[in-house]
Each structure stands twice: as C-alpha cells, then as structure tokens.
Design a protein around this nucleic acid. Structure first.
Lengths: 154, 154
DNA sequence: TAAATCTGGTTTTAAGATGCAACCCTATTC
DNA sequence: GAATAGGGTTGCATCTTAAAACCAGATTTA
C-alpha cells in the first residue's frame, strides 16, 4: 500500500505535512515566494514532470495555499499565486532554508542572503522566542500535559 | 522512475527536504523533540510500519539528525537521540505546527501550547524578523540577484 | 529448562506514486 | 497554413510504500 494520509490526525504537524509535506509542494511554494507564477516557469525551474506539477498545483489550490488566476492575455494562460495561507509559510520556508545553509552548505554557494527591503540589512535567524523575545531552545520549553501527542495520533 | 533526489542541488531547501522532507522523517523528529527515543515507542506513537521506521531512523542517523545510542541495559536496546543538527530543526517544526494550528485547526483540539519553562508564558509565533526584531512578511524582503535560484537547480 | 515476551530488524507482496515521453487542444505568431 | 507556446492528460515502466509475516538475540515467566 502506498503513502499514508493524515487528514484526520489530531496532530497539526501531520495535517500540515499532508498539504505541503511531499517532495515537491514546499519547493513549489518556495519558488512562488521567489516570484514564479506560471506553469512552464515552475516546470523549468524545478525540473519537475508536467503531470506531477499539474497534480501538485491542483492540490495546493485545493488546499488554499495557491490560487489559480486566469490572465487571459494570450490564449489560455494562468498564474498560480500565493494566498495568505501560502504566504504564511514564509517562516517555515526560511527556517528550513537557514537550517539547510547551516548544516548542509553547498560548497560553492553562499548562504541565503535575505534582506529587509526597507533597510537593506539581513534578516535574523528564525528562532522560537519567549514572550520577551529571547531565543528558546527545545530544552527551555514544556507543554502542558493535555497538549502532548497521543499514541496513534502522530 | 521514482522520486527524484536533490543531493547535488544548489538549493539548500531542496537539500534540506532531501533529509527531512518526506512524510515520516519530520514527524519522527517532532516526536524525538517530545521526548520519544526508542524504536517501539516511535512505532506505536506514529503508527508507522516497522520497515519504514527502520529506514527513516537509519537515514536520519546517516544524515546526522539523530544518533543511535546503545543503551545495553536489557539485551539489545538502542535509543535514537537528537543531535545538535536535529535540535536545530526546532524552529522549523514549531513554525510548521503554528501554521497548521492557524490554517487547519482540528475541530476538537486546542492549538499548540508551548511554554517557556522559566516563566510559564507561551512562546511567540515564529516569524522572520529584521535586524531590530520587527516582523517581516515576504513582501518586506528581497534577495540580492546572485542568491536567486536558477533554472534546473530547484 | 522450556515457553513466552520484548526489541530491533529483514523479507515478501500489493497497492500507489513517480518520471518520462507522447499526445491533445487552443491560441498566437510567422 | 505551418510552426510554436501554454497548459494539460494518458500510458507505461519503475520505484516506494504499508502491512504483515518472519527472524534472532536476550530476558523474564512458568
């Protein structure tokens, strides 16, 4: 049997992974954040098969991460644009990018250089912070009992 | 052919997804953060097939996200513990959890209640911030040209 | 001491997912 | 009228996955 789905999981991470947790979806969202909007551009930039791209774009649209806009300029032309829900993946994508840059740096590539448009200064590393803004590690936090994950619920 | 791999991709997100971008790996890391360490516990909590768990644990160990520790107490017993690299996924996992809680809330479940151990106060939403700590949206940032992704490189 | 159990893991089998190439249809350009 | 571009579907070979059966070492139970 093939991939298990988690639609009914009580764990929101599992449900989130259901929407953007496969190989291509998050890369599509990433490129959408970089500015890509059209089918052929996604296809060429990602090197993804057309049928898979079709499927993933459709699923992302169904899940409200992208929306399909008919820009009827020259024949049938569409754009896939991020929704608010999709844009809200910004911290996730950037955190993952920073993790990758830190732990799997490409030999000949500099790390993500993402800058504040207003000041030109680099953005901070994405961290979990306490109410005062101080960084927290996993050892600095706890969860009240009833929010712990249960067996079989992921 | 099956899944494409991105080991040589110049995009660190693609390389990161290569390590933790499949269905189970990030859930395993999540549960490791919740405190799970043993094979059988992962298996029961996640409801994952043993062969898949075997494969994923091995891959996470190979990638330096977990390390396998022989705790030879009673026969052959091992623990899978997060490395620094694995712990560094904390912001990624929490950001994803918060995204899921916001956009796909479970009907009968409260959102993540993660609290600062020192003060008991809830942690902040994980955000991308500028040098002064102000939240930035995707529209507030830019990338210098040479850090843009190139075609075929993901 | 033999039987049952725990733990971590491999093998087998089928149902699904993926990648590639080929094809389709519409609209536009040459 | 032919060639091209955009967006998509179909068919097929191949790979991955899930579930369950099986395995082996160590340990508790009877």
């Amino acid at each position: 049997m093939a991939r298990k789905r988690f639609d009914d999981s009580s764990c929101s991470v599992a449900r989130a992974l259901n929407e953007v947790g496969d190989w291509w979806s998050l890369l599509i969202v990433l490129h959408a954040m970089y500015g890509t909007r059209r089918f052929v551009d996604f296809q060429q930039e990602l090197g993804i098969a057309k049928n898979i791209l079709c499927d993933r774009l459709g699923r992302l649209v169904d899940n409200g991460v992208l929306r399909k806009v008919d820009v009827g300029e020259h024949g049938s032309r569409f754009e896939y644009r991020l929704t608010d829900k999709g844009r809200d993946l910004f911290p996730v994508v950037i955190a993952l990018r920073q993790w990758g840059d830190k732990w799997n740096p490409a030999p000949e590539q500099e790390a993500l250089d993402l800058r504040d448009r207003a000041t030109g200064r680099p953005v901070q590393t994405v961290l979990v912070r306490d109410a005062d803004g101080q960084p927290l590690s996993i050892r600095d936090v706890f969860m009240p009992e009833d929010s712990l994950p249960e067996a079989k619920k992921g």
